[in-house]
């Protein structure tokens, strides 16, 4: 089935983000990636948390589960474990995933479910009117803050790598082509894929703005802005773990790149390892038929409605004779 990005539009819903919001870019990136991968809408489940990013699933024509603040990953896990055939895309803000949901962020890495997690990283809590998010650097004072930020930022890519995510990438909401490609790679990756998606918040983040990322403040002699973003793939950086012996070095290299910020900000894939077994593979080791008959696909009852379960083994152990 040939799908177009427009097949993933939801005309009946007005996308109510501020004009110029990065969420539009991410929405386009998702719709393009889904279309190019030929994913039928009913097979996709987009799971989101709370905040502006939480509304993303309502604007993409596929199943959407708009959940609680910080709880995107637990919901996504339940859905994926119950039916591993579903293509599960978890969406969340930076506060959602790295503040209130940070415990889930770390623990999801331990499981390595075969799904994708995209954080909308704009440094602020937009929907509650501009408070500092966990990715805002120490000392920065975005316009709604009464005082400069007193907390240091968490390093999302670094945290993902040491938590066990087997794919860690960064992209930019205004580079939709790069974002679309990154999303495609994340979906195709076997294991838990994390994308740190940088995005301006045109309303509340007056520091890391679209112009800032584009380098409008640092033009070269010819007057051309020098973008702060550069693509890892264009520098010959190889994030792929081909053999377990490389893993430590690749992780260190990813961490090293993840430290870069300011005048040079890398985007692209930082780390990728498909050698680590996924949670689904680990389950299959215990339940040989897990793939064919996952929890959501089991029969439960016979044609007359009776439970098909035979408890004689359970009861055998408990019998008094």
């Amino acid at each position: 089935m040939v799908l177009k990005p427009s097949d993933f539009r939801v005309p009946e819903v007005f996308a109510d983000w501020c004009p110029g919001c990065g969420d539009f870019g991410i929405m386009n990136g998702l719709q393009m990636a889904f279309a190019e991968l030929g994913l039928e809408p009913h097979r996709i489940v987009m799971v989101s948390g709370i905040g502006c990013s939480g509304k993303e699933p309502h604007n993409v024509k596929c199943n959407g589960v708009h959940t609680l603040h910080g709880r995107t990953l637990p919901f996504a896990m339940g859905i994926k474990v119950a039916n591993p055939e579903l293509e599960v895309i978890a969406i969340g803000g930076d506060g959602d995933g790295l503040g209130i949901g940070a415990g889930h962020f770390v623990n999801a890495g331990r499981r390595n479910l075969d799904m994708t997690y995209i954080i909308h990283n704009n440094g602020v809590y937009g929907l509650t009117k501009g408070q500092a998010s966990p990715t805002l650097r120490l000392g920065l004072q975005t316009k709604a803050l009464p005082k400069p930020n007193i907390n240091e930022a968490v390093n999302a890519i670094g945290l993902a790598v040491i938590s066990g995510y087997t794919f860690a990438a960064r992209s930019y909401a205004y580079d939709v082509r790069h974002l679309k490609d990154t999303i495609k790679q994340a979906i195709q990756h076997k294991g838990l894929a994390f994308i740190d998606c940088l995005q301006p918040c045109p309303t509340y983040n007056n520091i890391t703005t679209k112009d800032w990322y584009a380098g409008e403040d640092r033009k070269d002699a010819s007057g051309k802005p020098q973008s702060r973003l550069y693509k890892l793939e264009e520098t010959g950086f190889d994030p792929v773990v081909h053999d377990w012996s490389e893993d430590f070095q690749k992780k260190m290299a990813a961490m090293d790149k993840a430290r870069e910020w300011g005048d040079r900000i890398p985007i692209g894939v930082f780390y990728k390892n498909e050698l680590e077994p996924t949670f689904e593979e680990r389950l299959k080791d215990r339940i040989p038929f897990y793939r064919e008959r996952p929890p959501a696909k089991q029969k439960l009852k016979d044609q007359n409605g009776f439970s098909t379960v035979d408890l004689s083994e359970f009861m055998g152990e408990l019998k008094t004779s």
Partner: peptide
Amino acid sequence: IAAVNSASGAALAGARA
């Protein structure tokens, strides 16, 4: 928190959870 919400997720996907 993860326990209750992942059970909800599984229930939405069709498993009794």
